[in-house]
């Protein structure tokens, strides 16, 4: 039986184990992006995706739509994490740093939502 108080024991356990959360998610999204971006670059090179009909037919394939949603989700998440680190490293002023990080997250998640919505709209549209 330990004589340490509950608070002391909790402190001894360290943080809430989320300290590596940012680092870990950057690696998880990076690993996911290896096959996804290779597939994406190959697809864009393979099909004339600046042609409207080809593009719509391509996205209407369920496998393509799912892969695109995964690609965009991983990509925008990865970008938001990476841009945050760059801002933290190079912006000295705390206020500017905070505002920059918030704005970069809002912008990237907004563009990510728009991209995912566009894919779903085409894929689910008549």
């Amino acid at each position: 039986m330990s004589l340490r108080s509950p608070l002391s024991q909790a402190r001894g356990l360290g943080s809430a184990k989320e300290g590596v959360g940012h680092w870990w998610m950057q690696r998880m999204t990076a690993i996911a992006l290896i096959p996804l971006s290779l597939w994406f670059v190959f697809s864009v090179a393979r099909f004339p995706l600046l042609d409207y009909a080809t593009m719509i037919a391509w996205i209407k394939s369920p496998l393509v739509a799912v892969a695109l949603v995964l690609y965009f989700a991983a990509m925008f998440y990865h970008a938001a994490l990476g841009v945050q680190v760059v801002i933290e490293d190079y912006v000295g002023n705390e206020g500017v740093k905070l505002v920059s990080i918030v704005l970069s997250k809002f912008a990237l998640f907004a563009f990510g939502a728009a991209a995912v919505f566009a894919v779903l709209k085409i894929a689910l549209g008549a």
Binding site: Y52, A79, G82, V83, V86, L108, A118
Partner: peptide, 29 residues
């Protein structure tokens, strides 16, 4: 990495133009 983060805007515009219609996509193309 930073350039690609800005490039995501281009990708979002690409699929959004396609979802909007042929005219918007024509402008993007």
């Amino acid at each position: 990495g930073l350039a690609l983060a800005f490039g995501t805007i281009f990708l979002a515009a690409w699929v959004t133009a396609a979802a909007t219609g042929p005219d918007a996509f024509g402008t993007f193309s």
